[in-house]
Simulated assay, not measured.
Amino acid sequence: MSEPRQETQEFWRHAAFRELGLLKARFREHRYDRHTHDGYVIALITDGCERVRVGRQVVLAPAGSVLVVNPEEWHDGEAGAEEGWAYRTFYPSVALLSELATELGQPHVPLFPQALLDDPELARLLAAAHAESTSPEATRAETSLLTALRRLILQHGDADRPAEPLDRSGSQRRLSRYEQVIEDGLAGEIDLQGLAVAAGVTRFQVIRDFKKLTGSTPATFIRDRRLRRANRLIQEGASLADAAFAAGFSDQSHLSRSFRAVHGITPGMFRKAG
């Protein structure tokens, strides 16, 4: 019997867009916990199959397909086949895609209604952009990325979406309040009672609001925001221990476990790519 393929992961920054992170990974046993990003996730599956929950839908992404996750969308990821999956992923910011959309004459920040895309030409362009992301010729790296993102935005972006519907239940208003309390208190203890008092509701209502609007629990949401803060602090040069403390993790090991469960890499790898 052949040995299972080793899990590998490599993370780096784009040669022309230093804020743009890229990941090349192969996983079999690894499972991503549910989480969000403040930017986009664009993943080209190169081998095997990944199973992903995005919002309330479940998709199976085979080799050759492209997965797109919008900012703030809850998602996870795991093997969708026995052999696992391999992929090449881009993490562009909202600012970058918004700038490109404006140049392309699009009226809104790009959103992508379909998480799973079957577009061989897009897959080819993304593969080239990922491979050339470390090119010593910065113009070449920039051109290949912009070419791929242009096709993604024009062919798959939702440029004509209607205005956001009004929220009549108050859940969205309360979620904004919860978010503020969480951001202000990340370095300390955050409990349901504190969130409930801040919004003038019961703890059960807090749980219902998070489930309704994020599809997740308050605890998962808080962990997600702690990781975001740690990410930012690490990028700004903080030590892993200081970032863990400032983001409310019990210690550096706690940060490392949570970081890998969500990002598939260690905080050290993330910092080294900075």
Rank of each mutant, 00 (worst) to 15 (best):
L125E: 06
A163D: 14
S258K: 05
D158P: 05
E103C: 11
T147L: 15
N231D: 14
I45H: 06
E164K: 12
A244H: 05
I190E: 06
S176E: 13
Y40C: 00
A243Q: 08
T8Y: 00
L22C: 09
E7F: 07
I153L: 11
A129M: 01
L117D: 02
E7K: 05
P120L: 15
A127P: 04
H254C: 10
S239V: 12
R232D: 02
E164T: 11
A127L: 13
L152E: 02
L122Q: 04
S171V: 11
V201I: 13
P162A: 11
A246F: 01
G157M: 03
A159F: 09
K211Q: 13
L122M: 09
E82M: 10
K24Y: 03
I222C: 08
K212A: 14
G105E: 08
G77M: 05
Q9T: 12
Y40G: 06
F204G: 14
F259M: 03
R271S: 14
P267H: 00
F112K: 04
A129H: 07
W85N: 04
V58N: 05
A131P: 04
L96R: 02
L154S: 00
H108F: 07
S144K: 05
H14L: 10
N70R: 01
E121N: 07
I45V: 15
L100E: 04
Q172H: 12
L154H: 08
Q6S: 15
G194S: 11
W12F: 12
A101K: 04
L186N: 00
V94H: 07
A243K: 09
R226M: 02
R88Y: 08
W85H: 13
E29I: 01
V181L: 13
F11A: 11
A138M: 13
E19I: 06
S2V: 14
H75Q: 03
G21I: 10
H30T: 09
T89F: 02
F259K: 06
V197S: 11
L96S: 06
V52R: 07
A61V: 15
A43Y: 03
R225C: 08
P4F: 10
W85Q: 06
L67G: 01
R271P: 07
D38I: 12
A138D: 13
A196F: 08
H156K: 07
G264E: 06
L154Q: 08
R31V: 15
E99C: 11
V41Q: 10
R177N: 00
H108C: 01
R53W: 08
R151L: 15
